Simulated assay, not measured.
Amino acid sequence: MCGMNSQFSRTRRGRFNRFFALAAFSSAMLTGIAGINSAFAQTAMPVSANAIQVAGNAGPTPAWIAFCAQMPEECTYDASEPARIVLDQTTWKAIVEINERVNDTIIPVTDQDHWGVADRWDYPGDGLGDCEDIQLLKRRMLTEKGLPHRALRMTVVIDELGAGHAVLMARTDRGDFILDNKRKAVLPWQETGYRYVKREGSDNAAWVWLGNQAAPIVTATK
C-alpha cells in the first residue's frame, strides 16, 4: 500500500527492543499526552475546510478484509455515534499531538520487509509499521480519548509519487482533515497534494468511492 523505499536492517530492528507492546505502548502515550509540549504542535484552531464529496460505492482492499476478519471489533459500524467530530481546542490539540507522537515513535517499514507480504493491515505493536498500520494506531488512540470511531475513516490515496498510500481522515464540523505519517501537520484534505481514491463510509460499513479528487501539491513537512 505505502510507497516507501525501505531497507530494514538487524541494527535498526534492535532499536525496537525499547518499545512497549501495543497495549502498554498505547496506554503510556495516552497517559502522558496532555503533558506533551511539542515544538510543532498546531495549537490554533484550524479554519474551516471543505468536506470531501462521495462519488459512489467502492470495495475495500483485500488486506482490509483480512484485517477485519482478524479483528472484527475494529471494523464495526455504530450508527449511534456522531458522523462528525465537534472540534474544540481540546479535541484539536489531541488530534495534532497524537498524529505527531505516533509519527515520531513508529519507524516506517514496508510490509514486504516487515512481514514478507505485499500488503498487510495491522497494529504496529513492535514499533514497526507502514502507513496504514500507523494510521490504525492513531485511530485507536483517538477513540480511547473519546472521539467517535465513525468519524475517523481509513482512506486510500495516491501520493505525490504516484504510489498508493493510506491516511486517516478526521471528519469534523469544520471539514475533513488528514492525519498522515509523511508530515507532522494535520491538514485539510484539499491541501495535501494527494488524489483521493476511497475511504470507509460514514453511513454504513461499506467503503465509498471518492472519484480520484485531487488536492493541490504541497511540500511534505517532517
Score class of each variant (00 low, 15 high):
residue 204 N to D: 14
residue 47 V to H: 11
residue 109 V to G: 01
residue 199 R to A: 15
residue 150 R to A: 05
residue 114 H to F: 04
residue 177 F to K: 03
residue 166 A to P: 01
residue 133 D to V: 10
residue 200 E to K: 08
residue 219 T to R: 13
residue 147 L to N: 02
residue 26 S to D: 08
residue 93 K to P: 02
residue 145 K to Q: 15
residue 193 G to Q: 05
residue 84 R to G: 04
residue 37 N to T: 11
residue 3 G to L: 04
residue 118 A to Q: 09
residue 155 T to F: 02
residue 67 F to M: 08
residue 79 A to G: 07
residue 57 N to H: 10
residue 57 N to P: 09
residue 195 R to E: 09
residue 98 I to Y: 05
residue 37 N to W: 05
residue 95 I to W: 07
residue 174 R to N: 10
residue 135 Q to E: 13
residue 170 A to P: 02
residue 189 W to K: 01
residue 152 L to C: 03
residue 160 E to H: 05
residue 38 S to C: 07
residue 190 Q to L: 10
residue 172 T to H: 00
residue 158 I to E: 11
residue 189 W to T: 01
residue 138 K to M: 02
residue 20 F to I: 09
residue 4 M to S: 08
residue 114 H to T: 02
residue 14 G to F: 08
residue 29 M to H: 10
residue 66 A to K: 08
residue 43 T to W: 03
residue 80 S to P: 03
residue 57 N to D: 10
residue 124 P to T: 04
residue 15 R to G: 11
residue 48 S to Y: 06
residue 82 P to M: 09
residue 136 L to Y: 09
residue 161 L to H: 13
residue 30 L to Y: 05
residue 100 E to Y: 07
residue 5 N to P: 03
residue 68 C to F: 12
residue 58 A to I: 09
residue 75 C to L: 07
residue 96 V to P: 00
residue 108 P to E: 02
residue 136 L to E: 06
residue 193 G to M: 04
residue 122 D to A: 15
residue 54 V to G: 01
residue 48 S to N: 13
residue 105 T to S: 11
residue 112 Q to L: 15
residue 109 V to Q: 04
residue 149 H to A: 15
residue 178 I to D: 04
residue 33 I to H: 01
residue 204 N to W: 08
residue 53 Q to G: 07
residue 104 D to K: 14
residue 86 V to A: 14
residue 69 A to S: 13
residue 71 M to N: 08
residue 23 A to F: 12
residue 101 R to H: 12
residue 75 C to M: 11
residue 218 V to L: 05
residue 204 N to A: 13
residue 30 L to I: 12
residue 41 A to E: 13
residue 123 Y to C: 03
residue 110 T to Q: 02
residue 188 P to H: 06
residue 145 K to M: 15
residue 75 C to R: 04
residue 147 L to D: 05
residue 28 A to Q: 09
residue 214 A to D: 01
residue 143 T to E: 13
residue 84 R to T: 14
residue 143 T to G: 06
residue 142 L to M: 14
residue 198 K to F: 03
residue 175 G to L: 01
residue 122 D to T: 10
residue 183 R to S: 08
residue 104 D to H: 11
residue 180 D to L: 07
residue 178 I to A: 04
residue 66 A to R: 12
residue 25 F to D: 12
residue 54 V to M: 08
residue 32 G to T: 08
residue 210 L to R: 01
residue 169 M to Q: 04
residue 216 P to V: 06
residue 57 N to W: 11
residue 198 K to Q: 14
residue 47 V to Y: 05
residue 119 D to C: 01
residue 106 I to V: 15
residue 181 N to W: 07
residue 131 C to S: 06
residue 170 A to M: 07
residue 87 L to R: 00
residue 184 K to M: 11
residue 89 Q to D: 09
residue 139 R to L: 13
residue 24 A to V: 10
residue 39 A to W: 08
residue 150 R to C: 07
residue 186 V to D: 02
residue 68 C to T: 03
residue 88 D to H: 06
residue 78 D to T: 07
residue 86 V to T: 10
residue 107 I to F: 14
residue 167 V to L: 01
residue 162 G to A: 04
residue 148 P to N: 01
residue 199 R to T: 07
residue 140 R to V: 14
residue 110 T to F: 04
residue 159 D to M: 02
residue 202 S to Y: 09
residue 176 D to M: 11
residue 120 R to S: 06
residue 44 A to Q: 10
residue 190 Q to Y: 12
residue 89 Q to L: 09
residue 177 F to I: 07
residue 142 L to F: 12
residue 123 Y to A: 05
residue 221 T to N: 13
residue 159 D to V: 00
residue 2 C to P: 07
residue 65 I to G: 02
residue 39 A to R: 12
residue 192 T to K: 02
residue 2 C to R: 11
residue 104 D to Q: 13
residue 73 E to Q: 14
